[in-house]
Design a protein around this nucleic acid. Structure first.
Lengths: 196, 196
DNA sequence: TCGTTTATCATGCGACTGCATGATAAACGG
DNA sequence: CCGTTTATCATGCAGTCGCATGATAAACGA
């Protein structure tokens, strides 16, 4: 067996190159050559790990999803109360600093792209329930802890929170909202969900 | 003076061709040739009315904005109470049928595109305050009419409603939510804003 | 009727696209 | 040390891209 290489690492490397290009120049300037250059490898090598451009984009989307997933679950370990955890999770989804703006630029691009590419739509559809049930679970925990009102419909509240986070992204990235205003809106909304 | 032609009509015709292409095949397949074919004119004629591709996309975005504006203000004339008007306005923004899905596919594409194109971002930034203040105004009217609770912060509620509408678009277009579920979530949210 | 202006078109150019192919290098088993 | 397998690369190809240019056609004033 010759020259063994970590394929997953290579694919991740390619996926991250795609992410950087989407972030810097947008989805339209993702090409095999551009990605190869960004990843510091030849175009043929990119083709060795990914047979088609569509598959490359799908790979980048999958890696994006697991990356988000990791970040989201990481929030769990640095929050105390259920309500803090819920708030922290939503904050993680908002473009409040460079890192999260980076994530959201890419996410927005994939949202648009997935509308027109069936396989990407399928990947999107696959990831959504996890996040939504994760949020709903946190809401239920906060209710059990007496922090959120019992009459709330956890699933609907999760959908609303998620939609709020997604929907405020573009307006923020485009400069309409400041991060402070975004947080203020979120906290305003969360306040009304509390008991009392 | 020779062969006089309605330039605005031509530009509108081009903009609508761009819209159709974005809807059918996505932003990435918008090209001068494709648009010319879709608009039923030669590529040179497209160039006659629009000097560059970026300008063509900007034109399409502007027309999209005024189109949305017209639809939104049209809601005013077919609703009775302030709360109905508010609900109707938000419903107009949601992908609940083919026509509104058509609008939202295009809107989502421009949201992603505007993040990476400065002039499009400027156009986005320009349109947002109108819609948000329009929603806030309706909320205040509903408060004055005793339909919505007085303690609501109209501006923040408008931002939240708008973000909700924008943020649920992709999940719906991708097939995660049914139109019924979207309306249910909206009505669930609106219900808690009512006087009680 | 001629000339000027407005509008439309066809074509060409260099660059880039996705994808396919063949060559080359590296690493291990025999 | 040789041959097979894995990995990387350079190059070619047909097609498309945005954009520029020059040729027509149409319509009106002079």
């Amino acid at each position: 067996m010759p020259k063994i290489v970590d394929h997953d690492a290579r694919r991740r490397h390619i996926a991250e190159a795609v992410h950087r290009i989407i972030h810097d120049k947008g989805m339209e300037s993702v090409s095999l050559r551009e990605v190869a250059a960004e990843a510091g490898m030849s175009m043929g090598t990119v083709q060795y790990y990914v047979t088609t451009k569509d598959q490359m984009l799908l790979l980048a989307l999958e890696h994006f999803r697991v990356w988000i997933g990791i970040r989201i679950t990481a929030v769990t370990e640095r929050q105390s109360t259920p309500l803090d955890l819920l708030r922290g999770t939503v904050l993680e989804l908002l473009p409040l600093d460079d890192e999260r703006s980076y994530l959201n630029r890419i996410g927005l691009a994939f949202q648009a792209s997935s509308v027109v590419a069936d396989d990407q739509a399928a990947a999107m559809r696959l990831g959504l329930p996890h996040l939504l049930s994760f949020l709903a679970e946190q809401i239920r925990a906060a209710q059990a802890a007496g922090q959120l009102a019992d009459h709330l419909d956890a699933d609907k509240e999760a959908s609303i929170l998620h939609a709020f986070a997604q929907g405020i992204v573009n307006a923020t990235l485009v400069g309409h909202y400041t991060p402070k205003e975004v947080v203020a809106a979120l906290d305003y909304h969360l306040a009304r969900l509390r008991v009392g």
